[in-house]
Design a protein around this nucleic acid. Structure first.
Lengths: 113, 113
DNA sequence: TCCTGTGCTACAATAAATGTAGCGATACGC
DNA sequence: GCGTATCGCTACATTTATTGTAGCACAGGA
């Protein structure tokens, strides 16, 4: 099996041989820090280092890789003097996650531990 | 840094030192195959092997690990003679992902490649 | 008994993430 | 100019996670 490193385009091969966009999206989002990055950028742009701080000091290597993926996916953009921020599309995606916040609260109360 | 293998409980330490449930949830969902599994179980239970087929022949090792995580998180359950299925809580979570399907369609058209 | 399918595991090989250090570029104050 | 600080980003060795393959014990059904 061919292994893939960073590109969404290539991922769509693994995530979905039928080319279903949902598979490519789930594959993109199902990588460490991707959801977290989108979450942290939810209401203000962050510099790469601020983002790293927000993300619990995740290693810059993987953050850069994810930011690269997200920029290719047109969900995040780098504004020259302002750091990283969600694109219009990225903001739209984030709105799908808003209910997650409330859900997470309920979830943490209902689970066994 | 202590590394964690499978438990959600432990993950909440890394995902969120402040114990914010959203971090634990993002951390759980941001692992390979987790989102995909929830997606594949969306409208019918699947046996472990059917799930594996649905998930593009992912290795049983990681699928079992994710299923174990998801069961601990009370999002998925194993019904003795019917395979794996979403719990009520898991179905509730999945409803938050429904808009993703439509979004994915738009997204795949708007991105550069 | 012999199949077949279930949930699940072992284990070596490979890929991804981590942690630390540092690069070139740019912008400050002095 | 010179230091100093920050920016986005990268190298690289170590550690962790995932993959791929094989197979286990168990439970029916024929």
């Amino acid at each position: 099996m061919p292994k893939q490193t960073s590109a969404v385009k290539k991922r769509s091969v693994r995530g979905s041989t039928s080319g279903r966009p949902i598979m490519a999206l789930l594959d993109l989002l199902g990588r460490r820090w991707t959801l977290r990055i989108l979450w942290e950028l939810r209401d203000q742009p962050l510099t790469s280092r601020a983002l790293r701080t927000a993300c619990d000091e995740a290693s810059p290597t993987v953050l850069q890789a994810r930011l690269s993926d997200l920029r290719q996916a047109n969900l995040v953009e780098l504004v020259p003097a302002g750091g990283y921020r969600l694109t219009a599309l990225g903001r739209e995606l984030h709105e799908n996650f808003l209910p997650l916040h409330r859900f997470a609260e309920r979830w943490s109360k209902q689970r066994a531990n």
